[in-house]
């Protein structure tokens, strides 16, 4: 396992400065700045449509931000300006991995293959970007063994070992969620962006997930950005919370601070108690229960 020398707790890992994302006239993210630290779980919460997933799309190169700077402070390789990088280089060089709200595995590949293909770059480097893999060069064979080993490690961690040869598309929902996290970890990231990993999980699966995320944070000394609607998860495992509403950052702080922040309560519960709540807020509150 590549557990690097533990970086100092609270070292800044990702710095987002004045991020703005416009789609035509719609401002999805409006001048948002925050920092995410190494070995911390930073949760990003907010009502539906607050711009959380858009923020992830900017971080992982799906969108080019209209304005703003996204700096990843890689503990070993130095700083990367994510908004200037090609999409595939962000995971490959800067070490940012991501999962999706609606799971995106490679459905026709087995669990093991999903985890090995995530290590494509290490394998390609070992093969010298050539057909060496085909010819079975020793260096490549060894790299492939290591890839399988890392895959096994994460299958053990996520309880998928006895399903290694099942096609990912045929796994039960909870297993697919965990496999997505395992695959993200196989890219050997320094920053893991999780988009609603607890969505659709039952309480037991959800508490397993909490344990897994804590394990990743503590033992692999990486930073986690977490979008989550399930407040029991957020409040329990986050070190730091950022609240977005209508694309703006309305609060940031520890779980305790956020719980009692009047702006946050207003954003979630509405301005005036006489006014009927907008439907998406009602849906949100129901999800949180």
């Amino acid at each position: 396992m590549s557990v690097a020398a533990p970086d100092k707790l609270g070292d800044s890992l990702i710095t987002v400065e004045h991020l703005t994302m416009r789609f035509g006239g719609l401002v999805a993210i409006d001048d948002v700045s925050f920092q995410g630290a190494n070995r911390e779980i930073t949760a990003i919460i907010g009502p539906n449509g607050a711009g959380k997933t858009t923020l992830f799309n900017c971080l992982t190169g799906f969108y080019k931000p209209t304005v703003g700077r996204l700096t990843l402070h890689h503990p070993r390789k130095g700083d990367f300006l994510l908004e200037r990088m090609e999409g595939y280089q962000i995971p490959q060089r800067a070490g940012v991995a991501r999962t999706f709200q609606n799971i995106r595995l490679f459905p026709a590949m087995s669990v093991l293959e999903n985890l090995i293909v995530a290590q494509h770059n290490a394998l390609m480097r070992a093969s010298g970007y050539s057909v060496a893999g085909l010819l079975g060069l020793r260096g490549y064979r060894q790299a492939e063994r290591q890839a399988v080993e890392l895959a096994r490690f994460w299958m053990d961690r996520t309880g998928l070992t006895d399903r290694a040869d099942i096609d990912a598309g045929n796994l039960p929902y909870g297993d697919q969620r965990r496999l997505e996290i395992a695959r993200a970890m196989c890219t050997n990231p320094v920053l893991l962006c999780l988009d609603e990993p607890a969505a659709g999980l039952n309480p037991r699966e959800s508490s397993d997930l909490n344990a897994l995320l804590r394990y990743i944070r503590d033992e692999h000394s990486i930073g986690i950005l977490l979008i989550e609607h399930d407040m029991s998860v957020v409040m329990e495992i986050s070190d730091h919370i950022i609240v977005l509403d209508y694309g703006r950052r309305i609060a940031a702080g520890t779980p305790e601070e956020i719980r009692n922040n009047p702006d946050v309560i207003r954003a979630y519960l509405g301005e005036n108690e006489d006014e009927p709540l907008p439907p998406e807020v009602v849906r949100d509150m129901e999800e949180e229960r």
């Binding site: 595939y88 490959q92 999706f100 490679f106 995530a118």
Partner: peptide, 17 residues
């Protein structure tokens, strides 16, 4: 095969699509 199944996701695990 990964690109065949999901081009965007393939890029997200660092494959040069």
């Amino acid at each position: 095969r990964a690109c065949q199944q999901d081009l965007g996701m393939a890029a997200l695990i660092g494959i040069n699509v």
